[in-house]
Simulated scan of single mutants.
Amino acid sequence: MNFGSDNIVGASAPVLEAIARHNGGAMAAYGNDDLTKSVKASFANIFERDVQVFFVTTGTAANALALASAVPPWGLCVCHREAHVIDDECGAPEFFMHGAKLSGLPVVGSKLEARDVAAYLKGLPKAVKQMPPKALSISQATESGTVYGLAELSALGEVCRTGGLSLHMDGARFANALVSLGCTPAEMTWKSGVDILSFGATKNGCLMAEAIVVFNTALADALDYRCKRAGQIISKGRLIASQFEGYLAGDHWLANARHANALAKRLSHGLARLPGVRIAWPTEANEVFPIIPAAMDRALREAGAHYMSWTDLSLDRQESVADDESLIRLVVSFATEETQVDRLLEIASAAVSRQAAE
């Protein structure tokens, strides 16, 4: 019962089969092979327009290099205060931006609202002593498991256009957000004003394969060089491209995300029915954030369940975590089985019954 992350499982069968299929023989190195060119070209079909695509091996690399393309060393990137780019990447975005800064805003449920961003931008001094805002970075899905709707994305896109900012989307769980909304990749990105996307695949079935997808061509000018300097132009590039081939073929990536989202809903609904349990934020992708009694927390961990304790910084002001409660994060992956979800719910339910009998 490991719900610690969607990074804990290996690759899906179609991805592994694609790697094996393209492993034999010789191909041009450093992404100059026909497979890499073909797979990159397939992104134009996914996004319904010409795009520039750069394959990298990690989400940190994708985010850091994407933001470095959008923000000069004297610039500012606005994000949520618990965004992955500011909280979980050891300063990599700021390192690759060569001194530019990230500014995190506090909001409920990790979703930035257009009016709050606009107000923040308006309040910044315009003198040269203030780093000028150059980009807004949002996570889709967010660090609270919530998903920006199309109207919310479009409103943020409009704020960026008005303020002269680029809009970056950290799509580590892009597929999970996409199937949650039931929209097209184009609608969730460039049609809503997104300029550059970190397209995640590792969490949803690949071994290590991420892509920087550029909609605003001006941001792609130096990305080849940035990727090379970061060690992200892989000599055996076909083994990255092959992962994407297996991942995207037959909408395998969407099927994986639907499976994970459905089991997350099952887990969330099951926990919400138990006395003393509250769901901190709506379960809109593949993460569940319940506030549970401390006794349930102990029982789950003693039974071998793995998951993370979570911060309450993005809770609604009317919500809080009491001393005898725990806020936890449970992540469901494409490989999670229904029996694992049901087993956790059984243990949680038994803990409630024992506590009631005491």
Rank of each mutant, 00 (worst) to 15 (best):
N2L: 11
N2I: 06
N2W: 07
D6I: 00
N7V: 01
A13W: 09
E17Y: 01
I19W: 02
A20S: 06
H22N: 14
G24S: 13
G25S: 14
G25D: 13
A26D: 15
Y30K: 01
N32L: 14
D33A: 08
D34E: 15
T36H: 15
S38W: 14
V53L: 02
T57C: 03
G59M: 05
T60P: 02
A62F: 07
A64F: 03
A66E: 04
A68I: 05
A68D: 07
C77A: 15
E82S: 08
E82T: 09
A83M: 08
D87H: 11
P93D: 01
F95G: 00
A100W: 09
A100C: 04
S103E: 13
L105E: 07
P106W: 06
K111L: 14
D116S: 11
V117P: 12
A135D: 03
A135L: 06
L136R: 14
Q140R: 10
Y148K: 01
G149D: 14
L150E: 13
E152Y: 04
L153S: 00
L153M: 06
L156C: 04
L165C: 08
A172I: 00
N176S: 13
L178M: 06
C183E: 10
C183K: 04
P185N: 08
M188P: 00
T189P: 02
W190E: 12
S198M: 12
K203R: 12
A211F: 12
I212Q: 06
N216K: 13
D224K: 09
R226D: 03
C227S: 01
K228P: 00
I233W: 04
K236E: 10
S242Y: 09
S242W: 09
S242E: 10
F244D: 01
G246P: 07
G246M: 03
Y247H: 04
Y247K: 03
A249W: 01
G250H: 10
L254W: 10
H259Y: 06
N261S: 09
A262V: 05
A262C: 08
L263Y: 15
A264C: 09
K265A: 14
L274T: 11
P275Q: 02
G276D: 11
R278T: 11
A280G: 13
A280Y: 14
A285C: 13
A285L: 10
N286E: 02
R298M: 05
G304M: 05
Y307E: 06
Q318G: 02
E319I: 04
D324Q: 15
E325K: 01
R329C: 14
V332S: 12
F334L: 02
E338N: 09
V341S: 08
S349Y: 05
A350N: 15
